[in-house]
């Protein structure tokens, strides 16, 4: 158990904890006044933002040893799917919002 608390200490420093708490409040604050007509684009935009997971996939892929085929194949899939999430998410959101824009 000592190892647990040591690594926990190392990993979740107070700084990280502050970031998490602040982001939770920020997330609530930022969207609490959104008009219902924007719910769908907003959901789609948020969907694109969590595609930031692709960074993790890139790191995994970049660290995989050249002979480790399972890691390479899964890493490749992960980067592909993550990119799909990012690109698809932003483009779909833009297409939705483009339609609102025409009105002005």
């Amino acid at each position: 158990m000592d190892g647990f608390w040591q690594t926990l200490d190392h990993l979740i420093t107070m700084q990280t904890l502050y970031i998490v708490i602040l982001m939770v409040f920020l997330g609530i604050e930022v969207i609490s006044h959104v008009p219902s007509i924007l719910h769908t684009p907003l959901m789609s935009g948020a969907n694109a933002i969590h595609g930031v997971i692709v960074i993790g996939a890139i790191i995994v892929m970049g660290k995989a040893e050249s002979g480790n085929y399972p890691a390479l194949v899964m890493g490749f899939m992960a980067v592909f799917l993550g990119t799909l999430n990012v690109v698809g998410g932003f483009v779909v959101t833009d297409r939705m919002l483009e339609m609102f824009k025409k009105r002005k």
């Binding site: 990993l11 979740i12 990280t16 970031i19 998490v20 982001m23 939770v24 409040f25 920020l26 997330g27 609530i28 930022v30 969207i31 609490s32 959104v34 719910h39 907003l42 959901m43 948020a46 969907n47 933002i49 969590h50 930031v52 997971i53 960074i55 993790g56 790191i59």
Partner: peptide, 30 residues
């Protein structure tokens, strides 16, 4: 979003952490 934040913890990667938590909390409110 929360899954992305977990990966952010793992790599101590601030972009993943903030993006993930932000979507996690905003998504819950939505």
């Amino acid at each position: 979003g929360i899954a992305a934040a977990c990966a952010g913890f793992l790599y101590n990667n601030k972009a993943m952490l903030t993006g993930g938590i932000l979507v996690g909390s905003a998504g819950t409110i939505l």
